[in-house]
Design a protein around this nucleic acid. Structure first.
Lengths: 133, 133
DNA sequence: GCTTGACCTTGCCATGCGGGTAAGGTTCAT
DNA sequence: ATGAACCTTACCCGCATGGCAAGGTCAAGC
């Protein structure tokens, strides 16, 4: 299997597979005589694992740890859980930030007449020093 | 006012003020004989405007547009509202992604015993092809 | 055999919003 | 005159991805 097939089979892009290899997330695979990377079905499983972890927003550093645990038969699920909980906290923090932005945006947008005039509550919000109502 | 005072007065870092200037978001200010940037109170208002817009998550490209509208006495609040609404949509999209991640993470974390064993629902989720329960 | 097209290789640039750091000039007060 | 605190530019770093370019390779058709 060349990198193109590995990409199609895993759902990652060939570019990202190379990137993961270069950044040390995955081990360099064997190469053909021409220097083409070769992938086994085992490698595909790893790539799929990475893709699913990325879909859950895990940063690559976390994924490196998860991969190591996954491949370690003596792993403790406590360690896995800890990584996931920490990531969940990060996600929740980001959610709070975004929700605060959303509420403020909604409020100021609602206060803007949008009638073509020059007065605008949004610009006022960005201008005012006061954070009050 | 030098850049340090402007930074303190606006809440931005000196570094970012230079960055905004270099990226065209703000006009280059006049310089002292020694080449130091000089800031007037008017400039500080602009910097504060940028800071508040960044706190609401507006990307720099949007802020450039908002600044132009803000400084244009013939502006239409319709245009402002449009920019804000589009940004709100982006925020809401990101919120949805993060909420989906959060729910999945919470579910799989809850299913992980965390008893020090090797079995782990989190790793299973990252391994399974099926997205089903 | 030769051409062609699809694939692979590496390497660099860009994104967006910063943080850090280095090497050097300036200003001001002591 | 010296030192501290400031300023200047110009780099590299993160984070995860996309894009492009220039070149090698493989397989199939003619």
């Amino acid at each position: 299997m060349n990198i193109g097939q590995a990409a199609a089979a895993s759902g990652l892009s060939a570019k990202m597979i190379r990137h993961y290899e270069q950044s040390g997330l995955i081990q360099p695979t064997s190469r053909s005589d021409a220097g083409y990377r070769r992938y086994q079905s085992k490698d595909i499983e790893i790539l799929k694992f990475i893709r699913r972890a990325r879909l859950l927003g895990f940063p690559l550093a976390d994924i490196a740890g998860l991969l190591a645990l996954w491949q370690n038969p003596k792993r403790s699920n406590t360690a896995v859980k800890q990584v996931a909980q920490h990531h969940l906290q990060q996600v929740e923090l980001k959610l709070q930030e975004l929700q605060a932005m959303k509420h403020t945006l909604q409020q100021t947008i609602a206060q803007c007449a949008g009638d073509g005039g020059a007065d605008c509550a949004i610009l006022q919000h960005l201008t005012d020093d006061s954070t009050k109502a």
